[in-house]
Design a protein around this nucleic acid. Sequence first.
RNA 1: GCGGCUGUAGUAUAGUCUGGUUAGUACUUGGGCCUUCCAAGCCUACAGCCCGGGUUCAAAUCCCGGCAGCCGCACCA
Length: 579
Amino acid sequence: MKHDQMMNVAKKRGFLWSSFEIYSGVAGFVDYGPLGAILKNNIMDKWRKYYVVREGFYEIESPTIMPEEALKASGHVDHFNDPMTECKECMDVYRADHIIEEFTGEDVEGLENQKLTEIISQNKIRCPRCNGHFNKVWSYNLMFQTLIGAKGKKIGYMRPETAQGIFIPFKRLLRFFRNKLPFGVVQLGKAYRNEISPRQGVIRLREFTQAEAEIFVNPQDKSHPYFPKIRDEKLNLYPAVNQMDKKEVLTISAQEALGKSLVSSELLLYHLYLAQKFLKELGIPDHALRFRQHLPTEMAHYAIDCWDVEVKTDRYGWIEIIGIADRADYDLKSHSGYSSEDLKVFIEYSEPISVEKTLIKANMSKVGPVFKNDAPKIIKILEEVDAAEVEKSFNEQGFFEIELETKHRILPEHVEFEKVHETIRGEKIFPHVIEPSFGIDRIVYSVLLHCYREEDEKTYFQFSRDIAPVEISVFPLLNQDDLNHIALEIKDHLRKLGFIAEYDSSGTIGRRYARSDEIGVPFAITVDHQTLEDDTVTLRNRDDSKQVRIPIADIEQISADLKKFKIEFENLKSADKGL
RNA sequence: GCGGCUGUAGUAUAGUCUGGUUAGUACUUGGGCCUUCCAAGCCUACAGCCCGGGUUCAAAUCCCGGCAGCCGCACCA
C-alpha cells in the first residue's frame, strides 16, 4: 500500500487527474483519464452483474436535479443544513449547535438560526480560541442549489444521493414488480455534496458516483433465499459494542453472526457478504477489509442498523467505501406524508383471518331529523369509532358524546349494533428498505491502491482480468516491418472481436512489457521470428512474466476463455517447447 | 473556513536566502540507429518557473492577493 507512488503512476498513465488543472484546479473534483474511465466503467459493469443479473434487481435512471419538495420530504433540506457561526475577531468558523452544546450541555439540534444566535448572545458564548464575539448564525447547505426554469422561481438541488430517485416513483415500481415483495431497484450515477473543505482527493469529492440498491421487503421477512449457501462464509465484523469496549474485530461465519444477533437480519448479513465477495473479486484482500457497525450515536436519522464496509489504506486509515443500512420504512413513510400518495404494499396473510366485529349502524330516520346539518358528519364518525366504546358509554352514562362545533349526545335509540364476521386477507404496510450504497470513486481508489505492486524496478497494477482497462497487448519482438505487420493485424483482429488491445513497437521488448505491466494489462502477445515460420506467437502472463507459445488461430478462444475465467494461464500448454 | 509549510517540463529535482547570460540535470515520452524476450546503449526532438497584481532598469527569485497540495484545528446529514 503506497498511496503516493500509486497516485503518481495513476496520474502519469491516465487513470486519475485533478479537474480544471489549467485553471489551477478546484478541490473536490477529479477527472478519470482514458484508462481510469474504462476501469471505473468495468467496475460499474461488474456491479451490475452482481446486483442486476445475479440478484435480479432492475436499474433505473432518474434526474440529478431534484425539486425542493422531494428533498424536503427526504429530510435533506432540513437535515443537510449545518448552522455555522464565525468569530468576528479571529475569523474561526464553528458549527453553531456544537459550540452551544459544548458550552451549555443542551441539545439544540433542529433549532432555527435566529434562536441559535439568541442563545449564543444570551449565554455570552465567546470564541474558544480568542474569546472574540460570534457573528450571526447562518446555514451552510451541503446541497448545490439551482433554479429550475427560465423564470426560475422553483428551487432545485443537485441530488445528494441516488436513493431518493428510487423512492419517489415507488408506486410505478411496485406495479412493475406486480405488487409483490420483495423486490430491488438500483441506480448508478452522480451525486453531489458541497463539502466545506474536501481534502482527501478522490476520497471526498463534491461530485461523486454512487451505486445504490434499494431492496424493498416485508418487515416480517428479512430472510434471503441464498443465505444457506453462504452461512459458512467468514466476515470481519466490528460490532458497535466491540468498538465501545475497545475490543477487536471478529472474524466470524455468517451463521454465527446471525446466531449471536450481531447483525439485525439475515438479509442485511447476506448483503454484507455480497459486498465482500464483490470487493474480493476486485482484488481487495481480506485483511484490508472489515465491516464496522455504526455506533448508536452516529446512526443516521433513518436507519435502524447500519454497517460500513471499510478498506484499509496507508494514507487515510480505514475508509468507508460502502454503507449497508436497514432504512426501515423511513423514506416511504415520509414521501407518503409529504405527497399524500399511498406508498404502502398489500401483504396477503398466509391464512385469511376471520374476526367477529360489531358494527354501528345509524338509524337514519332518527339521526337525520335530530342532528340535521351535522348528521352526515356524525354518521361518518360513528362508522369509525369502536363499537365497544359506544356500548360502554351507553351503559355508564346513557349516551355517547360527539364533539363537533357543539357537543352532540348520541342516544341508544339513534343506533343499532350489528355483529358481523369479517374475513381479513391481509394488510397494507410500508415495506422496509435494505440499502447497500457503494461509493464507486472510493472503490476505484481502493482497487488502484490494493492492486498496485512494486517489484524491484518495476511497478504494475495487478488488476483482476475482468476489470483491467486494456485487456491484451500485442508486440513485435523487434521493431521490424515483417513482425510489426503481423502484430498490427492481430491487434486489429482482437479489436474487432471486442477486446481492448494495444500495439506498441517503441523501445525494446523489455520496455514494452514494462509499460504494459504498469497499466495492468494482464496478457501480452509477442510476434517473433518463429511466428513467420509456423504462425505461433507467445502469450505472456503479467503477474509472473511466464510465457506459452500458442497458434495465432487460438488467440481468439484463449483470450475469451481467460477473460471469463474458464481457464487459467498456468494450465495453458505450449504449442511447442521452443521457448 | 482558520493557522503553518509548500508550489520550477509528464515525474524527480538544481537555481530562490543574496533579483542580472539562452532556467541546468536525470528519468519518462515521440522519431531514428542498434537489438532474437523483460525499463541496455547511441543520435535527435517535444516539454517547465501555479495564477493575478505590485516593487525594480531587470522578478523563478522580493512584496500583496488568489488557487491548489500537505499538516494541524473545524466540518463530514
